Simulated assay, not measured.
Amino acid sequence: MFFVKKVIVPFLICLTALTMTGCGNSPASGTTAEPTSAAYTGTQEATASGMGEVKVTITFDKGVVTACDVDAANETPDIGQLAAPTLAKAIVEKNAPIVDSVSGATVTSDAVVKAAKACFDAAGIKY
């Protein structure tokens, strides 16, 4: 019993504390992600299914998003197609693939986020 109280219990407490220190490192919603692959410069392109196919093209300069184009020509006119420029602008401003959905264009927004994540993944940039 002495061994358990004096050795095992303190060891387990330290082990628990050490494993919990790595939690919560992802950026909160609404924050700008810091690039982790500062070396990547180039353009990545990916597609995802919304109401139709959505194509996202992101240009990076040393791990920072400098441009984003969302081709939503196959999306619903006056809904998904109108949301595309707003989503592209948000990706550049946040320097992250996860952006708020455009009201009324949730399916398109989700497809853009999925394709943008694929671009970041291909570039080796964490978000």
Rank of each mutant, 00 (worst) to 15 (best):
T41C: 05
K5Q: 13
T106I: 01
V102Y: 03
M20Q: 10
L18E: 14
F60H: 06
T21W: 06
D78W: 09
V65M: 04
V92W: 04
A17G: 13
T59Q: 07
C14A: 15
S26M: 15
T31P: 00
P10L: 11
P27I: 15
S103Y: 04
I91C: 05
L15C: 14
I13V: 15
K6D: 14
F11C: 13
V102P: 08
T36N: 08
L82Y: 07
I125R: 00
A39L: 01
P27N: 09
G30P: 12
K117I: 08
G124M: 06
P35Q: 00
V70Q: 02
Q44H: 11
P97N: 05
T59F: 02
A33T: 12
A33E: 03
D121P: 00
M51Y: 11
S29Q: 11
T41I: 01
K117A: 00
T21E: 12
A67L: 03
V7H: 07
S49V: 11
L12W: 03
L18A: 15
T19M: 12
N95E: 01
K94D: 01
T43V: 10
K62L: 08
T19L: 08
C23K: 14
V4W: 12
N95G: 09
V64H: 08
P97C: 03
T76S: 08
D61V: 10
A122T: 03
A17I: 15
F120M: 03
L82C: 08
A72Y: 09
V112W: 03
K55H: 13
V9S: 07
A83N: 03
G63Y: 01
T86N: 08
N74I: 09
V113R: 01
A123F: 00
M51Q: 15
S49P: 05
I125A: 03
C68H: 01
G124C: 04
G124H: 03
T32A: 12
C14Q: 10
P77I: 03
E75K: 04
K94S: 11
A33M: 06
L87Q: 02
F11W: 10
T41W: 06
I125N: 03
M20S: 05
A67K: 09
D78K: 13
G50C: 10
N95V: 06
T47W: 06
A111S: 13
V9F: 05
S103M: 14
A39M: 02
N25D: 06
V92R: 07
Y127I: 10
V54T: 15
